[in-house]
């Protein structure tokens, strides 16, 4: 590197150089700008293409309301189930050790990378009419899960649970065990300590994890359509409705997408402060 003869001596240039370093070389800035544009442009395009004039009509169709209602209910149920069972699983993964636990942790992350359609097929293999668990359920209790709203919740939970488990497990690991020790010396049982001391300390992580899980469940498509089908009012969630509308009526698809986008932005805005502070802890 050559050093310009004028660069030392002037105090002002030091700050200037720091600012230049902060901006980074154009070799980094250009791809960064492309990446940002790639993420933002499609969303802007969606807004541009919204058929504003017919929007009220499109959105008041009963099928839209039903899909939205089903989506919100099922995603919330999936997020709730993820919390109910995911927090204990996260605790086990964070506190136990050994090859079995490592295997379990690997298995938990599989749904993160598995194509959702494959997840749907796997759920059918387990809970389908002739599935490993589905057949005895059907034979003994007359319960069939596939192609019901419950199947939607199960499919969404299958893909959403790992998000919560991994987020909360990380929080368990970094949690100071000193508080639980202090609680024990004050006479608290382990369960009382978990409820009153540990869980409140984990609240930011649980919130972050359940928002991630909820958002993932809301957008679930592949596993849902495979395992729960696509029957309007029963198992047709918003993503399925968007996809189907795309075939018949692209304007309707865009209108539906707009709603999903708004719901997601709204949730992120509502939780942004707490989520970010939670992640920073």
């Amino acid at each position: 590197m050559t050093i310009p003869a004028t660069s030392p001596a002037r105090p002002g240039t030091i700050r200037g150089d720091e600012a230049a370093l902060g901006r980074g070389p154009w070799q980094l800035r250009l791809p960064a700008a492309i990446a940002a544009a790639f993420l933002v442009l499609p969303l802007l395009a969606l807004l541009v293409r919204v058929p504003w004039s017919t929007l009220p009509h499109l959105l008041t169709e009963p099928i839209v309301g039903e899909a939205l209602r089903l989506s919100l209910i099922c995603a919330s149920a999936a997020a709730g189930l993820s919390m109910l069972f995911g927090i204990p699983l996260a605790w086990v993964l964070a506190h136990a050790s050994g090859p079995l636990v490592n295997l379990l942790r690997a298995l938990v992350t599989v749904p993160l990378v598995l194509p959702p359609v494959v997840g749907g097929v796997a759920l059918l293999a387990a809970f389908g009419r002739r599935g490993v668990l589905g057949r005895p359920l059907d034979d003994l209790f007359g319960i069939t899960l596939p192609f019901t709203p419950i199947a939607v919740v199960l499919a969404e939970t299958f893909v959403a649970l790992p998000f919560l488990v991994l987020t909360v497990e990380g929080a368990f690991r970094t949690l100071d065990s000193g508080y639980a020790e202090a609680a024990a010396t004050l006479g608290a049982s382990r369960w009382f300590t978990f409820r009153t001391v540990v869980l409140p300390l984990l609240a930011p992580a649980v919130l972050a994890g359940s928002v991630l899980a909820w958002a993932r469940a809301l957008g679930e498509f592949g596993a849902t359509i495979t395992f729960a089908g696509n029957s309007p009012g029963r198992t047709q969630t918003m993503p399925l409705a968007v996809y189907l509308a795309m075939e018949r009526d692209p304007d309707a698809a865009i209108a539906l997408s707009l709603i999903l986008l708004l719901v997601c932005v709204l949730v992120l805005l509502l939780l942004r402060g707490r989520w970010l502070t939670g992640a920073a802890r």
Binding site: G178, A182, V197
Partner: peptide
């Protein structure tokens, strides 16, 4: 047995 820890460990929540 009551314990006062060096870092006190008051429950922050």
């Amino acid at each position: 047995i009551g314990v006062v820890f060096q870092d006190y460990r008051l429950f922050p929540t």
